[in-house]
Protein backbone atom coordinates (compact mmCIF):
# COMPACT_ATOMS: atom_id res chain seq x y z
CA UNK A 1 0.00 0.00 0.00
CA UNK A 2 1.46 3.33 -1.07
CA UNK A 3 0.75 6.02 1.51
CA UNK A 4 1.67 9.61 2.30
CA UNK A 5 1.73 11.73 5.44
CA UNK A 6 1.19 15.47 5.02
CA UNK A 7 3.55 17.53 7.17
CA UNK A 8 2.66 21.08 8.26
CA UNK A 9 4.74 23.48 10.34
CA UNK A 10 3.76 22.42 13.86
CA UNK A 11 2.77 18.84 13.03
CA UNK A 12 4.17 16.64 15.78
CA UNK A 13 2.66 13.20 15.17
CA UNK A 14 4.05 12.89 11.64
CA UNK A 15 6.83 10.52 12.73
CA UNK A 16 4.43 8.36 14.74
CA UNK A 17 2.17 8.19 11.67
CA UNK A 18 5.17 7.30 9.50
CA UNK A 19 6.27 4.51 11.84
CA UNK A 20 2.77 3.06 12.23
CA UNK A 21 2.21 3.00 8.46
CA UNK A 22 5.63 1.48 7.81
CA UNK A 23 5.00 -1.21 10.41
CA UNK A 24 1.58 -2.18 9.06
CA UNK A 25 2.11 -1.77 5.32
CA UNK A 26 5.79 -2.76 5.15
CA UNK A 27 6.46 0.35 3.10
CA UNK A 28 7.53 3.76 4.39
CA UNK A 29 5.03 6.50 3.53
CA UNK A 30 6.05 9.53 1.49
CA UNK A 31 6.38 12.60 3.72
CA UNK A 32 4.76 15.48 1.83
CA UNK A 33 5.53 19.08 2.85
CA UNK A 34 2.61 21.52 3.07
CA UNK A 35 4.12 23.87 0.50
CA UNK A 36 4.19 21.18 -2.18
CA UNK A 37 1.35 21.42 -4.66
CA UNK A 38 1.33 17.85 -5.97
CA UNK A 39 1.10 14.43 -4.35
CA UNK A 40 3.19 11.39 -5.30
CA UNK A 41 1.63 9.27 -8.08
CA UNK A 42 -0.51 6.25 -7.26
CA UNK A 43 -1.25 6.92 -3.58
CA UNK A 44 -3.57 4.42 -1.88
CA UNK A 45 -3.88 6.36 1.35
CA UNK A 46 -3.21 9.81 2.84
CA UNK A 47 -2.83 10.53 6.53
CA UNK A 48 -3.04 14.00 8.04
CA UNK A 49 -1.27 13.80 11.37
CA UNK A 50 -1.78 15.44 14.74
CA UNK A 51 0.04 18.42 16.15
CA UNK A 52 -0.45 22.16 16.32
CA UNK A 53 -0.19 23.24 12.69
CA UNK A 54 0.47 26.98 12.36
CA UNK A 55 0.40 27.25 16.14
CA UNK A 56 -3.40 26.74 16.15
CA UNK A 57 -3.67 30.41 15.12
CA UNK A 58 -7.13 31.77 14.26
CA UNK A 59 -8.79 28.34 14.77
CA UNK A 60 -7.20 24.88 15.04
CA UNK A 61 -6.58 23.62 11.50
CA UNK A 62 -7.81 26.82 9.82
CA UNK A 63 -4.49 27.84 8.26
CA UNK A 64 -3.42 24.31 7.33
CA UNK A 65 -6.71 23.64 5.57
CA UNK A 66 -5.96 26.56 3.21
CA UNK A 67 -2.29 25.68 2.59
CA UNK A 68 -0.68 24.95 -0.80
CA UNK A 69 -0.97 21.15 -0.67
CA UNK A 70 -4.67 21.06 0.24
CA UNK A 71 -6.16 21.51 -3.26
CA UNK A 72 -4.27 18.36 -4.28
CA UNK A 73 -5.53 16.52 -1.17
CA UNK A 74 -9.11 17.64 -1.85
CA UNK A 75 -8.81 16.56 -5.52
CA UNK A 76 -7.42 13.19 -4.39
CA UNK A 77 -10.30 12.82 -1.92
CA UNK A 78 -12.74 13.33 -4.80
CA UNK A 79 -11.33 10.20 -6.50
CA UNK A 80 -12.59 8.15 -3.54
CA UNK A 81 -9.14 7.38 -2.07
CA UNK A 82 -9.11 6.95 1.73
CA UNK A 83 -7.90 9.84 3.86
CA UNK A 84 -7.50 9.77 7.64
CA UNK A 85 -7.08 12.84 9.83
CA UNK A 86 -6.05 12.32 13.45
CA UNK A 87 -6.41 15.01 16.12
CA UNK A 88 -5.15 18.19 14.41
CA UNK A 89 -5.64 16.24 11.16
CA UNK A 90 -9.34 15.85 12.09
CA UNK A 91 -9.54 19.61 12.74
CA UNK A 92 -7.91 20.28 9.34
CA UNK A 93 -10.36 18.00 7.50
CA UNK A 94 -13.33 19.62 9.26
CA UNK A 95 -12.00 23.10 8.46
CA UNK A 96 -11.57 22.02 4.81
CA UNK A 97 -15.22 21.10 4.65
CA UNK A 98 -14.31 17.48 3.85
CA UNK A 99 -15.97 16.35 7.08
CA UNK A 100 -19.14 17.63 8.73
CA UNK A 101 -19.03 19.64 11.97
CA UNK A 102 -16.34 21.57 13.82
CA UNK A 103 -13.96 20.96 16.73
CA UNK A 104 -14.11 23.51 19.52
CA UNK A 105 -12.28 24.17 22.80
CA UNK A 106 -12.82 21.31 25.30
CA UNK A 107 -15.84 21.98 27.48
CA UNK A 108 -13.73 21.69 30.64
CA UNK A 109 -11.14 24.08 29.13
CA UNK A 110 -8.33 21.67 30.09
CA UNK A 111 -5.91 19.95 27.75
CA UNK A 112 -6.82 16.26 28.09
CA UNK A 113 -4.10 13.62 27.82
CA UNK A 114 -5.17 10.11 28.76
CA UNK A 115 -5.99 6.63 27.55
CA UNK A 116 -9.53 6.96 26.26
CA UNK A 117 -12.01 4.11 26.32
CA UNK A 118 -13.82 4.06 22.97
CA UNK A 119 -16.59 2.11 21.36
CA UNK A 120 -16.68 1.29 17.66
CA UNK A 121 -19.96 2.74 16.43
CA UNK A 122 -19.64 1.40 12.89
CA UNK A 123 -17.29 -1.43 11.93
CA UNK A 124 -18.68 -1.67 8.43
CA UNK A 125 -16.23 0.88 6.96
CA UNK A 126 -12.88 0.67 5.20
CA UNK A 127 -11.31 2.22 8.33
CA UNK A 128 -12.79 -0.14 10.88
CA UNK A 129 -13.59 -3.50 9.21
CA UNK A 130 -10.84 -5.24 11.21
CA UNK A 131 -12.61 -4.20 14.45
CA UNK A 132 -15.64 -6.34 13.58
CA UNK A 133 -16.76 -8.19 16.69
CA UNK A 134 -14.84 -5.87 19.01
CA UNK A 135 -16.68 -3.04 20.62
CA UNK A 136 -14.41 -1.68 23.35
CA UNK A 137 -11.03 -0.16 22.64
CA UNK A 138 -8.52 1.98 24.45
CA UNK A 139 -6.67 4.56 22.37
CA UNK A 140 -4.78 7.62 23.68
CA UNK A 141 -6.10 11.15 23.33
CA UNK A 142 -4.12 14.38 23.74
CA UNK A 143 -5.90 17.58 22.77
CA UNK A 144 -7.25 20.95 23.86
CA UNK A 145 -9.81 21.40 21.08
CA UNK A 146 -11.65 18.14 20.56
CA UNK A 147 -15.16 19.21 21.46
CA UNK A 148 -17.09 18.03 18.39
CA UNK A 149 -20.02 20.21 17.44
CA UNK A 150 -22.55 20.16 14.61
CA UNK A 151 -26.08 21.49 14.22
CA UNK A 152 -29.06 19.24 14.98
CA UNK A 153 -29.86 18.60 11.34
CA UNK A 154 -26.29 17.50 10.58
CA UNK A 155 -26.21 15.30 13.67
CA UNK A 156 -29.41 13.60 12.73
CA UNK A 157 -28.10 12.99 9.21
CA UNK A 158 -24.71 11.58 10.23
CA UNK A 159 -26.27 9.41 12.94
CA UNK A 160 -28.75 8.05 10.40
CA UNK A 161 -26.12 7.40 7.73
CA UNK A 162 -23.74 5.54 10.07
CA UNK A 163 -21.11 8.25 9.70
CA UNK A 164 -20.23 8.21 13.40
CA UNK A 165 -17.38 5.75 13.67
CA UNK A 166 -16.07 6.03 17.25
CA UNK A 167 -17.64 7.26 20.47
CA UNK A 168 -16.02 7.99 23.82
CA UNK A 169 -16.85 5.61 26.63
CA UNK A 170 -16.33 8.54 29.03
CA UNK A 171 -16.77 11.91 27.34
CA UNK A 172 -13.53 13.88 27.92
CA UNK A 173 -14.27 17.11 26.06
CA UNK A 174 -17.99 17.81 25.73
CA UNK A 175 -18.40 16.38 22.22
CA UNK A 176 -22.04 16.05 21.20
CA UNK A 177 -23.31 12.44 21.18
CA UNK A 178 -19.88 11.42 22.63
CA UNK A 179 -18.48 11.60 19.09
CA UNK A 180 -14.77 10.74 18.81
CA UNK A 181 -14.59 10.01 15.07
CA UNK A 182 -16.72 10.75 12.00
CA UNK A 183 -16.67 9.80 8.35
CA UNK A 184 -17.86 11.65 5.25
CA UNK A 185 -20.93 10.57 3.32
CA UNK A 186 -18.88 8.69 0.69
CA UNK A 187 -17.07 6.68 3.34
CA UNK A 188 -13.54 7.52 2.20
CA UNK A 189 -12.59 10.29 4.63
CA UNK A 190 -12.45 9.88 8.40
CA UNK A 191 -11.40 12.18 11.21
CA UNK A 192 -10.85 11.16 14.83
CA UNK A 193 -9.42 12.83 17.91
CA UNK A 194 -7.87 9.65 19.44
CA UNK A 195 -4.43 8.65 18.16
CA UNK A 196 -4.42 5.12 16.66
CA UNK A 197 -0.77 5.62 15.59
CA UNK A 198 0.15 5.82 19.27
CA UNK A 199 -1.35 2.40 19.95
CA UNK A 200 0.44 0.05 17.54
CA UNK A 201 3.20 -1.41 19.72
CA UNK A 202 3.09 -3.20 23.07
CA UNK A 203 5.60 -0.60 24.27
CA UNK A 204 2.96 2.07 23.63
CA UNK A 205 0.91 0.40 26.35
CA UNK A 206 -1.63 -1.01 23.92
CA UNK A 207 -2.14 -2.05 20.32
CA UNK A 208 -5.80 -1.20 19.78
CA UNK A 209 -4.88 1.21 16.96
CA UNK A 210 -3.37 -1.51 14.77
CA UNK A 211 -6.70 -2.79 13.45
CA UNK A 212 -7.47 0.62 11.94
CA UNK A 213 -4.38 0.49 9.73
CA UNK A 214 -5.00 -3.19 9.01
CA UNK A 215 -8.54 -2.33 7.89
CA UNK A 216 -7.12 0.17 5.41
CA UNK A 217 -4.52 -2.30 4.20
CA UNK A 218 -7.24 -4.89 3.69
CA UNK A 219 -9.35 -2.49 1.62
CA UNK A 220 -6.48 -1.11 -0.51
Amino acid sequence: MKSAVIVFPGSNCDRDAHDALKRVTGQAPAMVWHQDTTLPEGLDFIMIPGGFSYGDYLRCGAMASRSAIMPAVIAHAATGAPILGVCNGFQILAESGLLPGALMRNAGLNFVCEKAPLTVANSNTRFTSAYAGRSDLTIPIAHHDGNYNADEETLERIEGEGQIIFRYGRNPNGSVHDIAGVMNENGNIMGMMPHPERAVDVNHGGTDGLALFESLLGSA
Binding site: R66, A102, N149
Partner: peptide, 9 residues
Protein backbone atom coordinates in the same frame (compact mmCIF):
# COMPACT_ATOMS: atom_id res chain seq x y z
CA UNK B 1 -16.60 33.18 4.57
CA UNK B 2 -13.45 31.47 3.29
CA UNK B 3 -11.02 31.81 6.20
CA UNK B 4 -11.71 34.29 8.97
CA UNK B 5 -14.78 32.53 10.34
CA UNK B 6 -15.99 28.95 10.43
CA UNK B 7 -19.61 29.02 9.26
CA UNK B 8 -20.37 25.81 11.16
CA UNK B 9 -20.05 27.52 14.54
Amino acid sequence: AKLLSNPVI
